[in-house]
Design a protein around this nucleic acid. Structure first.
Lengths: 395, 395
DNA sequence: CACCTTTTTTCAAGGCTTGATTTAATACGT
DNA sequence: ACGTATTAAATCAAGCCTTGAAAAAAGGTG
């Protein structure tokens, strides 16, 4: 019942160090005095900890600021080159590996295509390892300077007793991804669901900055979500929380690819949208899902078309689901992303907001805002990289 | 971004004291040695803290246990009479006030009826205050020994900057309940939504014991839920989380009393169930909602009746909503309660489980269990009383 | 009654934070 | 140029806290 973080006076020091490090990391360059005010720790303690951190090279002095007739404030900052983190986005069509410094500036990037039809685990593993080698070589960063590698995958990630991935869309059933990768690297590996890593990215660096309570919806071929409560991602009891796509929105409705009926994903997932378009008699000539959906949204611009009807319906279903989420979780913010979500949101965000308003209670709706992701298509990799970053910040 | 609990070495002591107190409170009588093992604190520290707590009268020695040829273990226990807490359940038909000792044994109880049609704030306030006087007089407990009064109310409770209650079913719009009560008592007042307090009760003392991740559904006239993540209730950004009743389950469906359409509450709330029954041509002669619903469920026992059809449908909608919750939140346990929920659950729990299975993904469904509340009709008051209890346990 | 076992307390050592004090670094007035 | 005021940071001694080790307590056993 009582999970402890540390009863000894030494743990206290570690905690305070971590608190100061986080405060410094997230609130740019700051003076010792400001840190003291922000964290509630005494100036003496801040001084002590900062001496230690400066000695280790974790933080560095970066200029100073005049102070109306007194000794100028020395600004401190986390040294962006103290270490590096790697983020991996395992998507349906490609494996993307990116290397960041601690300021989350991209230092190297590698892309390896994946056959959209087949995703054998060993193909993904070899591409991740190849990408790792490529970004290390490209950036010239030595492996010792890497805090860890974060990997965002589609599907459910079970962490204990061993990392095991179930990914329906990949045909993965209990794939021991960490063990497979372990053969090729000694770096710390941190694996999580892609929607969660994207949510973490938005929470730390995107539309969700500063919120303690948010939902990040990821709409691609399928539909997922990251739920942030108390400032951290909620992964549920077996880490499969966030399967928003299979929330029933029409009891007895359309059959979903999961086998059940009436799921949200059976209406607003990109795949389902295109299917519904085809069923309604529409025809599109497009190479892939992405351009097909774009064409359909374009068509929806002219009223009366099949596309317009499908998109209108989609917006209604999505709005209803967003409204339900707002009622249930009362988040500060709802953030929509994923390639299909962004495509739809760019043209129809106001309509989605209106549809959500119709299905939400007045009060919780009034205290939330519905936004689009701001980090673009690399958000999953960026978010994955925050997993090792968090390791660093926790000291 | 970084909420701190305490950076000083003195806060450390307070934290450790609270950890030990909780460990002792929730895991019955225990020896110092067992506490040391359970909390990870050294035997020396346990001894120190316990000396302090014994001196204050917070804990007491209660017998000893032989130890195979060595010094016997002295069992310690939180002194149930060190203090008392009061829980209040503000329901549609009555205000119930109960006084508990620290072992949560009921020491006194007072019930005041409420006109189900009208719920003016001052009537509720005067009944709460009268109940408070009654239980104090009845139990002979002096007011100084009361840690606080927890109050569970229907509707949304906003805590800051001042406690304000919005309760649609009561016609309450921004009622400053704490301020109104403050005129009549000096005791600490803790006000929360009734579904949340019930959830807390189940989490601490009922079906949810030991879980860190659960959902407690409260089905009465309306439908609410308490969401427990990371071991604590999630109240959302403005404390209105848990409005499960207005999750859309049929886009474009029945009109709900909230004005929207397709809400869960428009199908499985007791009021809605009775309405649907009447719409389907059924007739019931019953004095109140409770006996009417009971009669309908009885009728549902014989196939082919209107009652059977309505109940079947209700189970389907409820199961769908539960399934969606399981997908979204991946809880360890889903606990159904509320008077209507219990009535329905007693006869149809297996059907609800089956309906939920149909709408949930295999993996999260397999790792959850769907249960009924075990604390009975006093759970809301009991849960409300845990609010001041928590105050005590946090030191 | 001596000896063993197990639990609890005592004690000194080591660490930590902190308010108070001192030192550092700069602007301003003369 | 120079002293003084002002603000920032470092230093220091004091006060708590936890802890491993050692001692004491409490009971059984032969």
């Amino acid at each position: 019942m009582a999970e402890r973080k540390g009863g000894t006076v030494r743990d206290l020091r570690r905690d305070n160090r971590a608190v100061l490090l986080r405060a410094l990391y997230f609130s740019g360059p700051r003076s010792r005095q400001e840190l003291s005010a922000a964290t509630g720790l005494s100036p003496a303690s801040v001084s002590n900890v900062m001496r230690e951190l400066l000695g280790e090279g974790v933080v560095a002095e970066v200029g100073s600021v005049d102070s109306d007739g007194g000794r100028p404030r020395v600004l401190l900052q986390v040294n962006p080159e103290y270490g590096y983190v790697v983020g991996v986005d395992v998507g349906e069509t490609r494996v993307q590996v990116e290397l960041f410094d601690l300021a989350m500036t991209e230092r190297a990037k590698a892309d390896f295509p994946l056959d959209p039809a087949r995703h054998p685990a060993d193909a993904v593993v070899s591409r991740i390892l190849a990408g790792l080698d490529a970004v290390l070589a490209d950036s010239g960063v030595p492996a010792e300077a890497i805090f860890g590698v974060g990997i965002g995958v589609p599907g459910v990630v079970q962490q204990r007793p061993e990392v095991v991935v179930d990914a329906q869309t990949f045909g993965w059933d209990r794939v021991p991804l960490e063990r497979l990768l372990r053969a090729g690297t000694d770096l710390p590996l941190l694996i999580d669901n892609g929607a969660n890593t994207m949510g973490q990215a938005e929470l730390w660096f995107g539309s969700g900055r500063g919120t303690h309570n948010a939902v990040v919806g990821l709409i691609g071929s399928g539909v997922g979500a990251a739920i942030i409560t108390h400032g951290t991602a909620d992964r549920g009891s077996t880490a499969s929380a966030g399967e928003w796509g299979h929330t029933p929105v029409v009891v007895g409705g359309r059959t979903c690819r999961c086998g059940n009926v009436g799921c949200l994903e059976a209406y607003v997932g990109a795949e389902a949208m295109l299917e519904r378009y085809a069923e309604a008699g529409g025809t599109l000539a497009a190479a892939d899902q992405e351009s097909a959906l774009a064409a359909m949204i374009l068509e929806a611009g002219t009223p009366g078309t099949v596309g317009a009807r499908i998109i209108d319906e989609t917006v209604r279903y999505l709005g209803a689901a967003v409204g339900g989420l707002i009622n249930l979780l009362n988040p500060e913010r709802v953030i929509l992303g994923g390639w299909a979500g962004l495509l739809l949101g760019e043209t129809h965000l106001d309509a989605i907001r209106e549809a959500a308003r119709c299905h939400a209670l007045k009060h919780p709706f009034a205290t939330t805002s519905i936004e689009l992701c701001t980090l673009g298509p690399d958000a999953v990799a960026l978010g994955a990289a925050t997993l090792p970053l968090e390791l660093f910040l926790n000291g």
